[in-house]
Each structure stands twice: as structure tokens, then as C-alpha cells.
């Protein structure tokens, strides 16, 4: 993806990125309210962090934003594959590269001079988010329509197991978002690039 005009993120990446951010915020906050209706892990999420006001409102938000996440995610993945950006930007991956970049990052020595190049930690994290989002959509489908998707339900270990998968999938996504925001704060140019494209 070498660009002559200095474009780091094409327009479709920026649009799908911000739509995805909106969908994830709505889904996470409304999802926490839904979790609070029957908190199976023994703790509740503070109401002020949740969206929807009550269970019925939270479900309305959740089951609206799920379409945004899914449709936007499919557009992103399709464009990523068709443009070959997926293969150019996120591969190759190697364990030694991951550990090397990780230790460099922790020592503060990982270079961000070229925003066009994702280091191995970034590649791994972004690929994790893609796969985790797919898992969230699939486990969400089982929770929403467990009778209508029997193969998916059995593959995830049944309805109750799918609840756990969905929750921990969310936890993974929120953990990523937290680290992602810290990284953006450390290298603010990346925020500008995701807005302006360069």
C-alpha cells in the first residue's frame, strides 16, 4: 500500500473505523445494562456506565447497533480482502516478530516513524479484534436466536456457554479499546491520520 500522495488510511478505512467505534460503544454500554439484569459473574456494572435506562431500552439500543456492527464489519472485511490491504498490512505474522516488537514497545524503543507500516504487535492486536468481533457476532446470534441456529449453538457449547463466550468476547474487545486509546494518546499523530487520512 505504498502511496504517492501520502495517504495512510483510505477513506473507506476511516469511515468504517468510526462507524465501528460508534457501534462498539453503544453495544458495550447497552450490553452492560443487559448483563446487569442477570449478572452471572456475581458483580454488576455501575448503572452510570450503561446505556438504555432499563432492560427494555438497553435491548432496543443493542439490537439496533448490532446491525451497524455487522453490516459495517462485513463492508470493512470485504474491502480489506478485495483491496488486498488485509494481506499487505497485517501479514506476515511471526511469534519472534511479536515478542521482539513487544519487548521493544515496553522499553519505549518501538518506532512509529512510518504510520504506513504496522509493527507485529499492532498486526496481532488488529487481527485479534477482527476475529473477536466475528466471535461476538456469532455468539450474539446464538443468544438472540438460539433455536434458529442449531449448528452455531452446538459449536459454541449451547445457550448458556454462548452467554459466557459473548461476555468474555466483549471483555477482550474492551481491553483492546483501552490499550488502543492509550497508544493513540502516546502517538497522537495516529489520531490525525485516522481523521484526515494522512
Amino acid at each position: 500500500m505504498a502511496n504517492t500522495n501520502g495517504l495512510i488510511h483510505p477513506l473507506w478505512v476511516r469511515i468504517t473505523h468510526w462507524l465501528n467505534a460508534l457501534a462498539v460503544i453503544v453495544l458495550a454500554m447497552s450490553g452492560w445494562r443487559i448483563y446487569d439484569a442477570s449478572p452471572f459473574l456475581g458483580f454488576s456494572i455501575p448503572a452510570y456506565l450503561t446505556l438504555g435506562g432499563w432492560l427494555g431500552g438497553a435491548i432496543q439500543w443493542h439490537f439496533a447497533a448490532m446491525w451497524l456492527l455487522t453490516v459495517n464489519g462485513l463492508v470493512y472485511l470485504a474491502a480489506n480482502v478485495i483491496s488486498r490491504r488485509l494481506f499487505d498490512k497485517f501479514f506476515p505474522l511471526s511469534l519472534s516478530g511479536l515478542f521482539g516488537d513487544l519487548s521493544a514497545a515496553l522499553k519505549g524503543k518501538l518506532s512509529h516513524a512510518d504510520l504506513n507500516q504496522y509493527n507485529t504487535v499492532q498486526r496481532t492486536a488488529y487481527l485479534f479484534v477482527m476475529l473477536d468481533s466475528v466471535l461476538l457476532v456469532l455468539s450474539g446470534l446464538v443468544l438472540w436466536k438460539s433455536v434458529q441456529f442449531p449448528l452455531l449453538r452446538e459449536w459454541l457449547g449451547g445457550y448458556e456457554a454462548a452467554r459466557r463466550v459473548h461476555f468474555f468476547g466483549m471483555a477482550g474487545l474492551v481491553a483492546f479499546a483501552g490499550i488502543h486509546l492509550i497508544m493513540v494518546a502516546l502517538v497522537p499523530r495516529t489520531l490525525l491520520a485516522m481523521i484526515r487520512g494522512r
Binding site: 452510570y48 435506562g53 432499563w54
Partner: peptide, 10 residues
């Protein structure tokens, strides 16, 4: 009221 609060915070 409940929905509005959610809407406002968002």
C-alpha cells in the same frame, strides 16, 4: 425518561 437518559449520555 429512561431512554432519554441513555440517549443523553450517549
Amino acid at each position: 425518561r429512561a431512554l432519554s437518559l441513555g440517549g443523553l449520555s450517549l
